[in-house]
Design a protein around this nucleic acid. Structure first.
Lengths: 226, 226, 226, 226
DNA sequence: GATGAATGAGCTTTCATTCAT
DNA sequence: TATGAATGAAAGCTCATTCAT
């Protein structure tokens, strides 16, 4: 099943207002993916959502607000799903590998979301900051477990995150193939000080692909973050 | 000496037209650095260059063209300078380290150029592609010399480049300190398979800072690429 | 007792519809006073009245209609009250003095009403016309009594009215002090031909302040005038 | 000769920019007179001036700016002309009479200007303030000369000004006839304490009508006041 | 080459009004 | 009656681009 209009479909059972808001967010994802945040116009989003332009402002204060809403919503959904899936993994090497690979896979499973997310990462410092906290937790866990031999700080986390995003970009743009997740995960482990053999083994182990699931639970959160 | 207006100063001995073009490019660098490419307006650039807005179009077809011209020019200058400075270094480990560290230092020595370059990297795929060729050459040299144990291809080069840019961003935004160059170089070497001790030693060795020198040689090239 | 919401409180014993209408009018007075008629938005009025914006149109055909309703209502209430209070005064000099001074006092006692009234005077020619009829009656009485030596016609009445409004404006804006009523009354009497000494004596005599009382009697009238 | 487009005609010998600016101001006067300042739209002004809407913003920052420019320009022109014409009149009674009557005549000779001025008086406190200074000077002169027996202060000046404006309104709206100037002047003199006979004689004396003359000298002044 | 006024499409945003519920 | 989401026209303003001088 395609995820096109997923916000709308999950809002089907909610009020009319929620449905329109969802339609706008769905439309916005598409527009953002296509032209980026800066070039996206409110009119275009409204048109894509098949509502009058004035309607947009009933649901969002301005363009920035829908950018935030969409980006935090997507990031939140993916993060939460990953977090759930990793709850029973203790080893930091496994965790970072898993997170990197699955994140890329999920984000690529719905390319528009992937693009929106990629663009948001550079556009919304707050989003990057928040996402990095998850990464940092696992990286520090690895340091505690003695697996990683480099200093874990904001700089390292940024470096780690940029590698993930670059791999995501490669996948989305078609330059990189399906291996991208494993390749970047292996490179990350090496960078962190994991021996090459171990890095390779962990990074290339077969992985059950996750299916992006979207919840309504984070709507409030997304709203709060605007 | 400050580099403000360096295009103009080097064009002093050329024709009036070349000088005006140079003034526009100098002005554009400043505007791009301040507000980014999308938000930069032609009027603002012309104003900053102290020429009439109509004059802009005598020298550049449209806004995109000056973006390219400026970005390729800056990237070209830095690349060429680095290339020159590295001409007598044979060892790939030394070369990659040197290039990463000096690139960051140079780009930060003139923050406006640094920002313009950083932004251009995401804006102009062609620029990224061209710059990556230089990186690839050294990485492949390392593979041939047996120093690097990972596969060198476009994906790896992208990863390598994204680390450099992320470090540059950290420096420009003030989040990272002066060590950024050494830190990222060390991480890169580890990633490439260089043993940790060796990586650390090479990446942190004291380095003579380069002074950004700008040439007119690439103007034609920049034009050709538009 | 504050007059805030006075329309609503007097409508308490009427039907629900009448109460909602009253709430809207109360809210409108506040909004008009704050931002003027043109800048007042229906949404803002409805919000202030705590009803849905659609509800507005069940009670008023459009924005102009509530402007009229409010203005005529306020003007009518004040006029009627003044009329009552003056029913036993025969002398025209006393009457005009009394009316001018008390009108200003009353309108200032509830500044929001005062502002709304002031603005309405320029906005609704019909309102001015109707109010002027009261003034004219007293001015003609003065002519009959031989107190005023100028010709009483529309022009003179307009002049007389504009002086009252200007004094009201001064009071509301804080530029004029409590004496404004007496001062303008004295000037008016001089203008009408009353000897200076007599004018001064009458205009400055101590006056029992009136308390604004609002009735529902004019609602129908207000409606009719729309 | 009609004064339609007088800004434009006087700018005929200036640069293109000045001519366009003049065209916009001419157009604005007409629009303001017709619908008032608030309801006037920039598009409508531009359309009336037969220029593109974007052109408007080359000459005025926003709507407020052209309102100021037009109002101060008109007020300045009339004031200066009156001032010149009155330079050899010493007697305050004569001066106030002359100013009131001629002001009304001039403002009515070009009704659009008159309306714009009338509306501006309520819209631009600064304009009122500045104009009142002229009135005050003559009123104080009258007090010094022993002609006026009332206290001259801001309140009195406001009252005086409101009478002039009300008379102007009467003339412009067609409610008052040609006598309006004399009538209001007579009323003003009475109000100020001038004996009725003297007031009548002065106010109704035959007067050579002034022809509105527009100068370019005040353009700078108008600009400065924006 | 250089100027800078002019253009007009297109953007964000507001708001009176309608209408399905 | 009441609701409140939706509408769409119209406002203010920006800006890449053109063109007469």
């Amino acid at each position: 099943m395609s995820l096109k209009g997923i916000f709308a479909s999950e809002a089907r059972e909610q009020g009319k207002s929620a449905r329109t808001r969802a339609r706008l967010m769905d439309a916005a994802v598409g527009v953002f993916a296509r032209v980026g945040f800066e070039a996206a116009s409110v009119n275009e989003i409204a048109l894509a959502a098949d509502v009058a332009n004035g309607t947009f402002y009933l649901h969002f204060k301005d363009k920035d607000e829908i950018v935030s809403a969409v980006a935090f919503r997507i990031a939140g959904d993916i993060t939460r799903q990953l977090d759930d899936a990793m709850s029973d993994i203790d080893d930091a090497i496994e965790r970072t590998c898993f997170a990197t690979r699955q994140f890329i896979d999920i984000a690529c499973s719905e390319p528009e979301w992937g693009w929106a997310l990629f663009r948001a990462a550079w556009f919304l410092p707050e989003l990057r900051k928040r996402s990095n906290e998850y990464l940092r937790a696992d990286l520090q866990r690895g340091a505690r477990q003695g697996s990683f031999t480099v200093k874990i700080d904001a700089f390292l986390v940024d470096m780690f995150a940029s590698m993930v995003l670059t791999a995501l970009f490669g996948r989305l743009s078609g330059e990189a193939d399906k291996d991208a997740g494993s390749r970047v995960a292996e490179l990350q482990l090496r960078m962190l000080g994991v021996p090459g053999a171990k890095a390779k083994k962990t990074a290339w182990r077969k992985l059950e692909p996750l299916k992006l699931k979207v919840s309504t639970a984070l709507v409030g959160l997304a709203k709060a973050s605007e």
